[in-house]
């Protein structure tokens, strides 16, 4: 993109916001349609063709609702939490390479930046739960903190493994390394790390846990905690948390695409890079939705046990294995 810098920034800022908004809106539609299909029903059909305008109608409804501030809440934090949860999600998109040329900001520590901003939303949800001063919300806030602490570790261990293979933290370069045929994708680079598919599965599980998607949706857990940290939120306040959830899913899946599936690289060499990136991204997003509508929720301690007793030792082992393999061969 050869625009003057200020214009470029503005275009990308608007573009990212539009992308996040459109994704949040239409992933809700995809989720509802998908869930409908999984459950042998049709999902939304009324508003627009195949219910395509349903997200717009929902947004209008949510925006027209009163923003209730329950008595006794910490007003500042309560209002701040939805903003804090969405803004970092948008920041993360700044380093994601959508295609060879379509990169908002190509910085060398892109991966670190995504993870730093990605962790903020958890804190924001905790803040929302705490500020609500509702017991369900507080339980949910405590859950989300311990869940996040538990899953950040294996996720980062996996990413370190990957960094040893790629040797760079620049997302753009990571994708460029995977050029030329799908066997060059990190997912298939078994020479460097024989357990690469396992590494991906750990990454995927951690991503589900980090984004609070089922079967790890401990924070919301509507049959236990009503709506968890969001219990006291009304109208668009609640809606923003929803948008942030989908934005985070998209970020997680984008990262998985970039790190494991060669980003914009085409497996067969036709069609533009953006198409392939989005295709891979939405296939992963679909799998996330699929998982949600198939599995029941885990117990909270089951979730922590999975992380501390299985995923962390396993990812440490993979880390050791990868370093050994890379040193020896």
């Amino acid at each position: 993109m050869n625009l003057p810098e200020p214009f470029r920034l503005l275009v990308f800022l608007l573009g990212t916001m539009a992308f996040v908004g459109a994704n949040a809106a239409y992933l809700v539609w995809v989720e509802r349609k998908g869930a409908g299909r999984f459950q042998r029903r049709t999902g939304p059909t009324e508003v627009g063709y195949a219910g395509l305008l349903q997200p717009i109608a929902d947004a209008i409804k949510l925006m027209s609702k009163q923003l209730i501030l329950p008595p006794g809440v910490d007003a500042t934090l309560f209002r701040l939490a939805p903003l804090l949860v969405l803004a970092p999600a948008m920041m993360c998109f700044a380093t994601i390479p959508f295609s060879e040329t379509l990169v908002p900001r190509n910085i060398n520590v892109g991966l670190v930046m995504v993870f730093s901003f990605g962790s903020i939303h958890v804190m924001a949800i905790m803040l929302g739960g705490w500020a609500s001063r509702n017991k369900y919300a507080i339980i949910s806030a405590a859950r989300i903190v311990s869940q996040n602490v538990a899953y950040e570790i294996p996720m980062l261990l996996v990413v370190i493994t990957l960094l040893m293979v790629t040797g760079t933290m620049n997302l753009h370069e990571i994708v460029q390394q995977q050029a030329g045929g799908f066997w060059n994708w990190n997912f298939f680079r078994l020479a460097a790390n024989p357990l690469m598919p396992v590494t991906f599965i750990i990454f995927y599980i951690c991503m589900l846990a980090e984004t609070n998607r089922a079967p790890f949706d401990m924070a919301e857990a509507e049959s236990e905690l009503v709506a968890g940290a969001f219990t006291e939120y009304a109208g668009m306040g609640f809606g923003v948390f929803f948008m942030a959830e989908y934005a985070n899913v998209v970020i997680g899946c984008s990262l998985a695409t970039v790190l494991f599936f060669g980003g914009w690289q085409s497996p067969i060499g036709v069609l533009p890079g953006l198409f392939w990136f989005l295709l891979k991204l939405y296939l992963l997003v679909f799998s996330v939705i699929w998982v949600r509508w198939t599995f029941p929720r885990t117990q909270f301690y089951g979730l922590l046990n999975l992380s501390w007793k299985i995923l962390i030792p396993l990812s440490l082992f993979i880390l050791l294995l990868t370093s050994a393999v890379m040193k020896l061969f």
């Binding site: 006794g72 017991k135 507080i138 859950r143 903190v145 301690y301």
Partner: peptide, 20 residues
């Protein structure tokens, strides 16, 4: 597991109208 308990406890006994 103790951690979560502590976490909830710390939060639960913080100043709040809903907790007597």
């Amino acid at each position: 597991m103790r951690f979560i308990t502590l976490c909830v406890r710390t939060l639960a006994v913080s100043e709040s109208n809903f907790i007597s």
